[in-house]
Simulated assay, not measured.
Amino acid sequence: MKIVVIGGTGLIGSKLVAWLRERGHEAVPAAPNTGVNTLTGEGLAEALEGAAVVVDVSNSPDFADGPVMEFFRTSTTNLLDHSAKAGVGHYVALSVVGTDRLLESGYFRAKQAQEDLIRESGRDYSIVHATQFFEFVKAIADFSTVDGQVRLSTALIQPISSGDVAAAVGRAAVGEPLNGIREIAGPEEFPLDELVRRGLAAKNDPREVVADEQALYYGAHFGERTLVPGPDAELGGDTFDKWSAGQ
Results as ranks from 00 to 15, higher is better:
11 L>E: 12
130 A>S: 15
37 N>P: 05
181 I>S: 04
31 A>F: 11
15 K>I: 06
10 G>Q: 06
53 V>P: 02
54 V>Q: 04
180 G>N: 09
140 I>E: 00
129 H>F: 08
16 L>G: 11
194 E>D: 15
65 D>R: 08
190 F>C: 04
159 P>F: 04
114 Q>S: 12
19 W>S: 09
31 A>T: 14
31 A>Q: 06
184 I>Y: 05
175 G>F: 06
14 S>A: 15
119 R>F: 03
132 Q>L: 10
216 L>F: 00
136 F>K: 05
29 P>L: 10
42 E>Y: 07
1 M>L: 07
105 S>V: 00
94 L>S: 09
185 A>T: 02
174 V>M: 14
154 T>V: 02
6 I>F: 12
136 F>E: 07
6 I>L: 13
85 K>F: 04
43 G>A: 13
53 V>T: 15
229 P>W: 00
130 A>F: 04
28 V>H: 07
100 D>K: 14
166 A>P: 06
162 S>Y: 05
203 K>S: 13
201 A>D: 14
41 G>R: 10
141 A>F: 03
159 P>T: 03
222 F>P: 01
87 G>L: 05
164 D>R: 11
139 A>W: 08
229 P>Y: 00
131 T>S: 04
196 V>E: 01
121 S>I: 10
201 A>C: 05
76 T>R: 08
194 E>G: 01
219 G>D: 00
236 G>T: 11
198 R>S: 03
72 F>A: 11
192 L>H: 00
18 A>T: 14
131 T>G: 02
215 A>C: 04
173 A>M: 11
54 V>Y: 03
40 T>F: 04
88 V>S: 08
84 A>T: 14
23 R>E: 11
109 R>N: 03
231 P>H: 11
17 V>T: 11
125 Y>C: 08
218 Y>S: 02
221 H>D: 12
40 T>G: 13
143 F>Q: 10
73 R>S: 14
197 R>H: 06
116 D>Q: 15
239 T>Q: 07
101 R>K: 15
58 S>Q: 11
164 D>G: 08
120 E>K: 14
105 S>G: 03
74 T>W: 05
101 R>S: 03
84 A>D: 13
198 R>C: 02
84 A>E: 15
160 I>R: 01
232 D>A: 14
178 L>R: 14
75 S>V: 07
104 E>Y: 00
12 I>V: 15
40 T>K: 07
126 S>Y: 08
27 A>S: 11
33 N>E: 13
119 R>K: 15
6 I>M: 12
69 M>E: 13
182 R>G: 03
108 F>D: 01
186 G>Y: 02
133 F>M: 10
247 Q>P: 03
39 L>H: 09
173 A>L: 09
237 G>V: 13
224 E>Q: 13
127 I>M: 08
147 D>S: 13
230 G>I: 12
222 F>C: 01
113 A>S: 15
96 V>T: 12
130 A>G: 10
199 G>F: 01
34 T>A: 10
245 A>N: 12
135 E>G: 02
206 P>K: 08
98 G>V: 00
159 P>W: 02
166 A>R: 12
166 A>E: 08
20 L>H: 09
189 E>I: 01
